[in-house]
Design a protein around this nucleic acid. Structure first.
Lengths: 130, 130
DNA sequence: CTAGTATATAAGCAAACGTTTATATAAGCG
DNA sequence: CGCTTATATAAACGTTTGCTTATATACTAG
């Protein structure tokens, strides 16, 4: 295959059929793009990032998370449900309590790595100025 | 430090001051959580995932992206602005055209890895049978 | 210069999201 | 058995988001 990164299509003609087809062949399916975006959506909330950061430190039950965040219990449950649905976190029952933990799968690992990278970038940005 | 993952706090008492402080010490700052969530928000849209997937294949100008996605030019520009603002993508001027490309930084790399992981997970899920 | 193309921005509207308040389920405890 | 605690779900409301239409900027061609 040609080096697609060399020149933008528009350098040749506005719509180069061959080049266009080559690019289309590399694009994710409709479903894949939707699913990928969904995962990002599930992580795209400050409260949920906080919850995941907490669970990266320690398994925890709902009321503890609510206490630590200073948020209402229903609000926390709401976000936990979203994170559960995409299998980023799981839970085990422990008496009355429901103890949540990060999933031990690719998505869970990805989230941990991501959080780490983002936090580090954030530290650098803070050090650089403001 | 103790192994925080061993037992949930609630196993000892509902709020164990020492354990709570240990966890708080590991949590991201308010700003870090907001920034991390913001990055996910910027990626949390099907159109933007598609745009990034396209740019991962080849640098491209706005009208090409609009053509390939079958979307209006303002809609594409709207999303490109969002991706620009968080430095996931950058652009160079080329005559009348504005050619966009993925940033060569940690965030850009992260996005590529993420897209790859998510697409692979998606393929597996499809193979496992809907 | 004027006309046309490529892109960016602004205003407006419908849909989606996050929180709160209120209610439901379910497990321990007396 | 009722009473309390832990959690989940539902309804409602204000905010945010993404798309469209319309307009603005900027480069090119003639």
């Amino acid at each position: 295959m040609k080096n697609l990164n060399a020149t933008p299509i528009c350098g040749e003609s506005h719509i180069d059929q061959q080049h266009e087809e080559a690019i289309r062949a590399h694009l994710p399916s409709e479903d894949a793009a939707v699913d990928a975006a969904a995962i990002f959506t599930h992580l795209s909330d400050t409260t949920r990032v906080r919850l995941l950061s907490m669970l990266a430190v320690s398994d925890m039950c709902v009321c503890e998370m609510a206490d630590l965040l200073g948020m209402s219990q229903p609000a926390v449950s709401h976000h936990l449900r979203i994170l559960r649905q995409c299998d980023v976190i799981r839970f085990r029952k422990w008496g009355q309590r429901t103890v949540y933990y990060l999933s031990d799968n690719e998505i869970g690992d990805m989230v941990k790595r991501l959080l780490y990278v983002v936090m580090e970038e954030n530290k650098e940005r803070e050090n650089d100025g403001i």
